[in-house]
Design a binder for these strands. Sequence first.
DNA 1: ATGCCTTACGTTATACGTAATTATT
DNA 2: AATAATTACGTATAACGTAAGGCAT
Lengths: 283, 283
Amino acid sequence: MLELYDLEKLVTFRNEGTLVAASEKLLISQPALSRSMRKLEDEIGVELFTRSKNRMELNENGILAAELAEKLLGEADSLVARVRQLDRSRHTLSVGSCAPEPLWELVATLGSAYPGMTISSEMAEPEALISGVQDGTYSLVILTSPPELNGVEVIPFGGEKLCFLLPMNHPLAGERELHLADLNGETMLLRPNLGFWTKTLESLPDTHFLVQQEDYAFGELLRASSLPAFTTDRVQWRYGATEGRIAIPITDPGTSVDYLVAYRSTEKKHLTAALKLIAAYTH
Amino acid sequence: MLELYDLEKLVTFRNEGTLVAASEKLLISQPALSRSMRKLEDEIGVELFTRSKNRMELNENGILAAELAEKLLGEADSLVARVRQLDRSRHTLSVGSCAPEPLWELVATLGSAYPGMTISSEMAEPEALISGVQDGTYSLVILTSPPELNGVEVIPFGGEKLCFLLPMNHPLAGERELHLADLNGETMLLRPNLGFWTKTLESLPDTHFLVQQEDYAFGELLRASSLPAFTTDRVQWRYGATEGRIAIPITDPGTSVDYLVAYRSTEKKHLTAALKLIAAYTH
DNA sequence: ATGCCTTACGTTATACGTAATTATT
DNA sequence: AATAATTACGTATAACGTAAGGCAT
């Protein structure tokens, strides 16, 4: 039977020009290569070389055969690559979110629901999330409003309320509720990757934001400085109260959201374990 | 390395459903097949099957792999087929002609000039011959007038003159020359595949033609009957005079032609041996 | 009880390497 | 002399078959 290895030898011979050179590339002896080439001719049933006593060259048949062989070898490689890629995608759950905290929770949930699966997660704009869940880029996306797409279902994933995170000695630290405008003009610490919250904060025109590029730096500054910052009820609930600081809810419209997890109906079956945990979370 | 044989085993397993059935098709033992499939998984680096204790099935990876494998095997077959086809065409000289006699001569000439070559010959209409020599369908074509094509050259290949082939006792058997009209109204024997001569004979409206589908039948009737027939000076010259008959030249316009052999200039080199013999023929 | 897959082990076949040979540059 | 391919022969690896075992329907 025709074998890919023999075809590779043929292509190598074409590229190197002599059996000696090709055999060195292939890490075999040149008698072995000589025999393989005869075997290949026998297999195809056609002469592929013109042989003189100390010279071997491809004839027209051989030139065509080597060319087609190279293509076939490429296709064999692509076969392997495609199957590997499918396998990886089968072991990967891709999730997207419009906000960081529910994404962390979802990733943690999925990690326990599907041990052995790779969870690929990212933050993105709502439009990208909606088209992504539809075209299969994401298996699950977290949104703040239902996408209303055919074949896409949603389940609730709790809410989140924006809070100021003030040092105890801040003048407003004693309030029970605040408005965004109450801290207008101050310099505030910002965690990176706030998702859609970024847009909410754009309504504070006179406020300076010290945006930290790393979570670690943000945490350090939170401890070391007395700059006001943001948090959410959900973060406080999940990770506990921040030492030396108090979280005060903000009452402006748009600072409270309800999250939804959306997924394609066709994938519902594969996602049952995750959906069960998400449903349990909201109860 | 990935091997086509292993891919074929995979496809066979998919088609048969069990290792036992597939191994029987492949004429190997099922332990051997079992090992090959493990080897294949190892090669691709991905699980291809779901295995229970006494059942083995393709998983999604395996389904994709089998599908791509089938395609690859088809392409491997086509590689072999294409190389074989090229080899055949390299050993085949294709010739076309507008008339039978010069074609017989050309085939005989080529057969001796290129021993080991397959001579593929056929009669065709002049238009088909001209386009055929241009597009490579034919290496050589026999025409009665130059095609005037770029990249196509011609050399003369002698002439041919139409004759009546009359039995000795025919009333006109003593004439030195005749016109087509002289035998109008009679029933005549016709050899099959006369090429362009057929058109010449269409100018005899009142004549019945007994067209023989086999050369043998024509020859028998020529001996056994006294029906007039056609021949040419070239046939008479080449195969000798017909026993019991006399060939009388026809003088009408269009009953004498000069032949040309046309070929692509790019193939001149490959055809030198043949062209030399053709040139020698006309001298 | 039958069908199907796996493991274990001994065997064979095929591809390989080394060494010697021939021919060409 | 150096380079390149082939032939001859012994070797080794890898695929194979047989036999036995386990698990399911």
